[in-house]
């Protein structure tokens, strides 16, 4: 039997913000298998971001279990979590978050460098990924010289570079125009279809929701529907 990529069991998360106690997640159970293309949707304050942060190992649950590739990450230390994220999770952020002082190539290469991969391996993989995202001719441009859509494609290449278990994308299209959004979704759908890469999005964007093959709807910290198309 396949081990699920992500396995969440009875996840709770509460925190206190400006003297208000917030119960952001109230017993969430979710399993995501390899190759799924999942959108987590819901209104503001429904707990999407909190859930994504916990899946991404950026935050810890108050209770419950979160397993990535069968490994329980709920109780890892900060440094263990950093190492875990580097090897297992690719991030795509809403505002791209590329390193502005590095070129597109260097941005993609950066995580592999943190993984201590050899120069040849880094060069080969960077070229392969930049070709895959259609930006092989923009390798030596810095982020400020690229459009938003191009930057987000570099961010996808960077997320793929360490060969992660899945890619976590937080509102990846929020800052993109419709053409760029469509290009980006095509790119991610291709990667999902052809390479079996697992994607988990949080999104408000109907265009993303339309392309997703599984839609998990959160409200008030609970999953109220989980549909596969």
């Amino acid at each position: 039997m396949n081990i699920p990529i992500i396995e969440i069991i009875d996840l709770h998360k509460s925190y206190t913000e400006t003297a208000v106690h917030v119960h952001a997640l109230r017993g969430v159970d979710l399993t995501i298998e390899k190759g799924e293309f999942t959108a987590i949707v819901g209104p503001s304050g429904s707990g999407k971001t909190t859930m994504l942060n916990i899946i991404g190992g950026l935050d810890r649950p108050s209770s419950g279990t979160i397993k990535i590739r069968g490994n329980d990450i709920s109780n890892l230390s900060d440094n263990q979590l950093i190492d875990f994220r580097r090897e297992n999770i690719g991030f795509v952020f809403q505002s791209y978050n590329l390193i502005p002082v590095l070129t597109a190539k260097e941005n993609v290469e950066f995580v592999m460098l943190l993984q201590n991969r050899s120069q040849e391996e880094r060069d080969a993989r960077t070229l392969e990924l930049m070709q895959a995202v259609g930006l092989a001719d923009r390798m030596s441009n810095r982020p400020s010289e690229l459009s938003g859509g191009q930057q987000q494609r570099v961010a996808v290449a960077r997320a793929l570079a360490p060969k992660p278990a899945f890619i976590l994308a937080d509102e990846p299209t929020a800052n993109l125009d419709s053409v760029s959004t469509s290009d980006l979704l095509d790119l991610m759908a291709n990667l999902n279809r052809e390479e079996g890469m697992t994607f988990v999005f949080s999104t408000h964007d109907q265009r993303v929701i339309d392309r997703a093959r599984r839609i998990v709807l959160l409200e008030d910290g609970k999953i109220i529907s989980d549909e596969r198309k």
Partner: peptide
């Protein structure tokens, strides 16, 4: 801060 947060998110450890 955002950028440093991102670096840690993608796997740059505190030592680095």
């Amino acid at each position: 801060m955002r950028e440093l947060g991102m670096l840690m998110a993608i796997g740059m450890n505190k030592g680095k």
